[in-house]
Design a protein around this nucleic acid. Structure first.
Lengths: 223, 223
DNA sequence: GTCTATATATAGATAGAC
DNA sequence: GTCTATCTATATATAGAC
């Protein structure tokens, strides 16, 4: 999955890699916007270069080629995801843990909508660049998440809802607010979704899904 | 929204439009597959022409240009959607009507996954080609759908769940099975989602969402 | 390390023979 | 109505001056 970064040497009077780090971050930020808007094939290196204000030759110097830049963007996104999940355990109180998980997913949709959209477009397009990510470890991680629900069900703490489809319900309903924000704004007459919009949507999701699983929502905790 | 079809005349010894109709259908079918996989900008007229087995000049002859073909594909998809919705009324029994709606949406995801994905990619990409579709009529239609839930709530037939976010919950959770089928297959070790997979997912969605709205699911009716 | 100029491939679109 | 050949624009990528 990793791409080759061309060897180079730095000027002695400047800290090694400072310019590189700054430029790479700027390029990645511009690339995220373009890839989120046009997908991989629909994005041109030229448009990214113009947005970041560098000649496109620099993009090739830093990331090798277009696929290398795209994979770097995807890697950054997946790092974000890994940091957001993994907070559910069988010992948790189901209602509290599930509410926390829905809040975390909605907060991700609010703060990283472009990342969510790039991931969505990649999966919709077949997800070939994610084949290394969709591996045995990923399946094992997914089973461990489903096992938490199974444990709660076995302990009689929640209704016997199929854990696999419950997870897809959680993902689909929360990611929708990032991926389909354009449609939501058009339908509700907004120009963008506010923090308040997300809070209300989060409350609705927590209320419906928890009750649907036979759980009593915990008292709202301050954001 | 409509594009110009070039004027032409037909040979007198052949029924007018027979060849055209057949070719246009074949081109649209191939275009749906390509656009669903690569999005608008990522799809080339050449790839569509090769898939359908016609020279690409024919595609331009029938649809004018690439955007015309894309809009024709989108129009066909939106026609499908219009035929699927609009079955909820305030007079319906909420539990039965909602279960029916979830079934219809899931059946759409199962039978028209490519259509769902093209719509999703278009919305994620900003939905400029849908700006004519996301108009005042669409907003009015959406409010009429939300009003059905409000009527049910006012009549005490279901919990006071915010109708707008409930609709997004329904859309997000059902469309997920079409748009993210690749990820679902990787996670569950399947090569494709079967009718049985969809039936089980549908049952889970109906069970959780209806109970979450304070409704008692109706007895399962045969598909 | 940076950027201009350019090589090469492929895109959308069309002219014109049949 | 159909299809070959071609035009023009733009894409990725790189060579080489600075």
């Amino acid at each position: 999955m990793k791409f080759e970064i061309p060897a180079h040497h730095t000027h002695p009077d400047k800290p090694a890699g400072r310019i590189r780090q700054k430029n790479e971050e700027a390029i990645l930020a511009a690339a995220i916007e373009e890839f989120a808007r046009h997908g991989f094939k629909g994005t041109s290196m030229n448009s990214i270069a113009e947005k970041v204000g560098l000649p496109k030759a620099n993009l090739h110097y830093y990331f090798g080629n277009k696929l290398g830049l795209y994979v770097a963007v995807l890697s950054q996104i997946l790092d974000l995801w890994d940091g957001t999940f993994n907070n559910l355990t069988a010992e948790d109180d189901p209602a509290e843990a599930l509410a926390r998980y829905i809040r975390a997913k909605m907060e991700f949709s609010r703060r990283h909508p472009l990342a969510s959209r790039i991931f969505a477009m990649e999966v919709i397009s077949g997800g070939e660049c994610l084949s290394d990510y969709f591996n045995d470890d990923y399946r094992a991680w997914f089973r461990s998440r489903a096992a938490v629900f199974e444990a709660w069900i076995a302990a009689g703490k929640m209704d016997p809802v199929d854990p696999v489809n419950l997870i897809f319900l959680l993902w689909g309903s929360t990611q929708h607010y990032a991926d389909f924000a354009t449609q939501i704004c058009r339908l509700t007459g907004r120009t963008r979704l506010t923090k308040k919009d997300f809070d209300e949507a989060t409350d609705t999701l927590i209320r419906v899904i928890l009750k649907g699983c036979g759980l009593t929502p915990p008292q709202a905790e301050p954001a």
